[in-house]
């Protein structure tokens, strides 16, 4: 496989656990360059864990994770981040105690020297004027939506090869969700591959080029977005009837 059509992120039979509690059972899927994968499934299906294993926050107990063709199993998160994988975790992905500007500077410093940093800051403020207004405030004082925009500002100015966006829309007002998705579309236009973890199925599928549906820590669907809706409905249906899926027993 040549460098160009090699997937940017590949998970192969990945299992993971939190202490004695197992969360993933042999998850496999891949993300092509510049494509968007929607990661769907009900609460507790293991969506966030997949993202955490890919970014190195949770170690895989077996299987392999490849970023840009390089096996990163057992590597610390900071090394994986330097390979060009960005992860915006669920809930809050910014440093509360640092100011808005310091949050941005922290990200931009690895791009280059002081000149590069201030140029990047200018770009970020141009795209999100609100952040410029509040640049001296502590990031913890921003609203939930503003914090997500701050996270997006980082990846927009310094586009990674692949971005894992974990529940970016959770708890946001519908109008703000639109802003966030507009930001995600911008990120995609810059050539970044996206893995969008989402509970709002329609939103994610509208953006996606393929979809993964998880149930109880295992993949039950991996294919084009058109078939994903049916798979999600089946999962929800099984849940409602209280049946265990064979993959997890």
């Amino acid at each position: 496989m040549t460098g160009a059509d090699r997937p940017i992120l590949e998970l192969d039979e990945v299992s993971a656990a939190y202490g004695p509690y197992r969360a993933l059972f042999g998850v496999s899927f891949s993300v092509g360059r510049g494509t968007v994968v929607a990661l769907l499934g009900p609460n507790g299906a293991g969506k966030s864990t997949v993202a955490r294993v890919a970014s190195g926050l949770v170690p895989a107990s077996s299987g392999s994770v490849r970023v840009d063709g390089r096996d990163v199993a057992g590597e610390p998160a900071w090394r994986i981040a330097r390979l060009g994988l960005a992860h915006v975790p669920e809930g809050r992905g910014v440093f509360d105690s640092l100011s808005v500007e310091e949050n941005l500077v922290l990200s931009f410093r690895r791009l280059g020297g002081r000149g590069q940093v201030s140029a990047s800051l200018e770009q970020a403020y141009e795209r999100f004027p609100l952040l410029k207004e509040r640049r001296q405030d502590r990031a913890g004082t921003l609203s939930g939506g503003q914090q997500r925009l701050l996270s997006l500002a980082k990846v927009l100015v310094a586009p990674p090869k692949v971005l894992l966006a974990d529940e970016l829309s959770l708890g946001l007002a519908p109008g703000v969700v639109d802003d966030v998705y507009a930001g995600l579309a911008d990120v995609r236009r810059k050539g970044t591959a996206l893995v969008v973890v989402e509970q709002q199925v329609d939103r994610a599928l509208a953006l996606a080029s393929s979809a993964v549906v998880l149930e109880r820590g295992a993949v039950v669907y991996f294919g084009p977005p058109s078939g994903a809706r049916a798979a999600v409905e089946q999962v929800v249906d099984r849940r409602a009837r209280g049946r265990r899926h064979p993959a997890s027993s």
């Binding site: 926050l57 975790p89 992905g93 640092l98 690895r110």
Partner: peptide, 25 residues
């Protein structure tokens, strides 16, 4: 300094700092 900024960030969340590509340890 950059180090000072990273130190303050590491206190709040070493993992979040690692996601920025910084060796928090």
């Amino acid at each position: 300094t950059r180090l000072g900024l990273e130190m303050r960030a590491a206190v709040e969340s070493p993992r979040l700092l690692e996601l920025e590509g910084v060796n928090a340890r």
